Amino acid sequence: MASTSEFTGRHMLLVTGAFFGVVIGVNALMAVSASRTWTGLVVDNSYVASQEFQVKADAAHRQDAAGWTMDIAYRDGRLIVRIAEDGEPLDLQEVQAFVRRPVGGHDDITVPLSPGPSGYEGAVTLASGVWDITVTTAPTALGAIERETRITVR
């Protein structure tokens, strides 16, 4: 004779408990992982950041309209930034690059750039991987330059 087992309230309680146990466990794991890898802080004051964003965006539009271009390269331990107007290098003041990993904040460094044969250059050792580079300058006639580019170092 074949035995039949029926699905009881106890079985339902175990299935429901297992389901919520998995959901809560995965959420806890993700929360711990997120808190260990990123602080979550993007800006100190979002209102001030929004005002600064518009000023920077307007300056970037004026610079683009004037034909300004920027190329970034990393070779032999040197960060090279070429900023030009219609192909001619621009004479800029206080050029620097803020170099950081896209996530983390543990390898951040500011590199002062000085005029060199290929553009504005600065010595920095970058490990292989992805880097975000924000180049800034002192104010120009069309506003300060602040451009961000992502590079991959092999």
Rank of each mutant, 00 (worst) to 15 (best):
L14H: 15
T16C: 13
G17H: 03
G17V: 09
A18F: 12
F20Q: 07
G21H: 05
G21L: 00
V26R: 12
V26H: 06
A28I: 02
A28R: 09
V32I: 14
S33P: 00
S35K: 14
R36N: 14
T37E: 06
V42I: 13
D44V: 13
D44P: 06
S46Y: 13
A49P: 02
Q51K: 10
E52K: 13
V55C: 03
V55H: 03
D58L: 08
A59W: 07
Q63S: 05
W68F: 07
M70A: 09
M70L: 15
I72S: 00
A73H: 01
Y74N: 11
L79G: 06
I80G: 02
R82K: 11
I83S: 05
I83R: 01
E85R: 14
D86I: 09
D86G: 14
G87W: 01
G87H: 06
G87I: 02
G87D: 03
E88V: 14
D91M: 06
L92W: 04
V95N: 12
Q96C: 06
F98N: 14
F98E: 12
R100E: 11
R100V: 10
R101N: 08
R101I: 03
G105K: 05
H106E: 14
H106T: 07
I109P: 02
S114Y: 04
P117F: 08
P117Q: 14
S118D: 11
E121G: 00
G122L: 14
G122K: 00
L126V: 04
S128H: 11
T136N: 13
T136R: 15
A141M: 11
A141I: 08
L142D: 01
G143H: 00
A144I: 10
